[in-house]
Amino acid sequence: MKKLQDTYNVVSNEQLCAKFYRLCIDAKPVALAARPGQFIHIRVRNSLEPFFRRPFSIYRAKRHVEILYEVIGTGTQVLASKKKGDILDVLGPVGTPFCLPPKGIKHVVMIAGGVGAAPFLFLSDVLKERRYQMTLLYGGRTKGHVFNMEEFKKNGCKIFTSTDDGSVGVKGRVAVLFSKIDPDPGKTFIYTCGPRPMMASVQDFAREHELQGQASCEEVMACGLGACLGCSIKTAKGYKTVCGDGPAFDLHELIFES
């Protein structure tokens, strides 16, 4: 049996833009088992600081496993210092992946805020095979949060970008791009991942137009295995764990509180 936790070599670790990095890990068994929406839980170094593992969506799973990450604290700083050949302790793939859109739907819209774009390249790899039309609405804070999206384009995604300060694309939150969505519930399905207020605005929009969708959620995690019940979030069906019941949830099941 494949071990759910193992150590693997870093293949590459490159900076994509001012804020984002892309780490490639030689973890073929993880890549083979992975499905879009799942994540890996990384122990960034063998020490008590930082104490917890750190969860990252799987950005790509081909021969290697890749993640897209933003440096925000100690854990991601340590990750950014990794070099080719370094060893990384990886648990995964874990979590419930995205569901495919219901039958009859041809068009998916992926709505991402910042590194919330991470699960969508892998998703577009899979949806491309199934010949979906794809649109990516991407909202970044500034141009430092906008990276080269060539691979999304190669998968056939139409891309629209906004930044809070207007330094790239349309000025404003990603909601300014909702006009790009064909709001026909028989044709369009939504995937979203990003900060909570952003996902709440997507949920409002989807509700208004009766669109179905899925959202990938975040919460602080300890085990990543459904053991500690620490990463629970509120849903219409009671508390659910992000690491086991999610990260992918039915968009309308989630309860976002301000």
Binding site: F51, C228, K234
Partner: peptide, 21 residues
């Protein structure tokens, strides 16, 4: 169980208030 967030990382440890779910 308790309302989230239920856990926090602390120096060499963690704080939890799962609430016996």
């Amino acid at each position: 169980g308790n309302p989230p967030p239920r856990i926090a990382e602390t120096p060499s440890g963690m704080l939890n208030a799962i609430g016996l779910e």
